[in-house]
Simulated scan of single mutants.
Amino acid sequence: MSTQEKKTLSPLYSITAGTIAGISECLVFYPLDVTKTLIQLQKGNEVKQSTFNVLKSIFQKGVAYKGISSPLAMEGFKRSVKFGATTEFKKFYNKLNPSFFKENSVSVNVASGITSGIIEGFIITPFELVKVRLQDPLTKFKAPKDCLQNIISKEGYFKLFTTGLEAGALRQSVWNAAYFGSIPWLKSIILPKNLTRADPKYDQKMLFSNFLAGTIGGLLASTINIPFDVIKSRVQGAITPEAKALYSSNTVFTIFKVAKTEGVKTLFAGWTPKVLRLAPGGGLMFLMFEGMMGVFKKWNGIEN
């Protein structure tokens, strides 16, 4: 094997590419995240509003980007972990067991996605907690700082980092496993089998396959992980003693509890805005990430 073939990019490049991809996706699709959270916070016999009505309402009220400073501050770091750590864990698992974790195989992508998702869960919890509290329509907070100070003073620093941690880590791990695990398989279906760099439309076909695979992967991942997302929103949105007691069990048990008391459909609350965001958002992220990594490889004289 030649030196050129062995040369790889520093983790700093995948972290940078992931950061750019994440911030781009957040800025474009954030109103749908607000919509999703508001729908997931609707409980019991409350009149359920449609995605369109909630989305229309938040723009009319001028709150479509409410709380964005918290996730925007988080997004760069979060996505850098999602893509950067996943990329590095692929190398780790491949070296650990090359026969099972073959390069860019479904197994290595699923394993690295789960591992990076656990790390993501620890990173995002305090930011997500502040974001959910700010997005609640009954919130009394006007800025992340007010919300943060209230959580620390009334619940303590420990709760800032643990409220919704389990559900959040499960949400990220399941999403990453489905997203990264499905993309190699999807690209193998989308791309022509005989495609080579000699094809005059090679770049266009690669761009299309990256966006489509990322979009379908985002749709699949968002559908599979949404029950964990719903529970995370409920746990982090619980501020009364009664509500906190209701969601005090482990995440899996709470999923069954909500399904039994409110119906299985409740576990998929917010699916439409979530998919409207993370399906094309997943396509945009993967397109941006692969595009930036391609640029970095050219700068460093590495062939794709």
Rank of each mutant, 00 (worst) to 15 (best):
M1I: 11
E5F: 01
T8W: 03
S10L: 05
P11W: 10
S14F: 11
I15C: 06
I20P: 05
I23D: 12
L27A: 12
L27H: 06
V28C: 09
Y30D: 03
Y30W: 11
P31Q: 14
K43G: 04
K43W: 07
S50V: 09
N53M: 10
K56A: 14
A64M: 04
K66C: 08
S69W: 06
S70P: 02
S70F: 07
S70A: 15
A73S: 11
F77E: 01
F77M: 06
S80Y: 00
V81W: 00
K82Q: 15
G84R: 00
T86P: 01
Y93L: 04
S99F: 02
S107K: 05
S107W: 11
S107T: 09
T125E: 12
K131A: 13
K131I: 03
K131P: 00
D136V: 01
L138V: 05
K142N: 08
K142S: 05
A143K: 13
K145T: 06
Q149P: 01
N150Q: 10
N150W: 14
I151Q: 04
Y157K: 15
T162N: 14
T162R: 12
T163G: 01
G168E: 03
G168R: 07
A169K: 05
P192A: 13
P200N: 05
D203K: 11
F208M: 13
F208K: 11
F208A: 11
N210D: 15
A213C: 09
G214F: 05
G214C: 08
T215F: 15
A221P: 05
R234N: 09
R234K: 15
P241I: 03
P241K: 01
E242C: 00
A245Q: 12
S249C: 07
E262W: 08
G263Y: 07
K265Q: 11
L267G: 03
A269S: 15
G270M: 10
P273I: 06
L276E: 10
P280W: 12
P280G: 09
G281I: 04
M288E: 05
F289Y: 15
G291A: 07
F296N: 04
W299T: 01
W299P: 00
G301M: 06
I302K: 00
E303W: 00
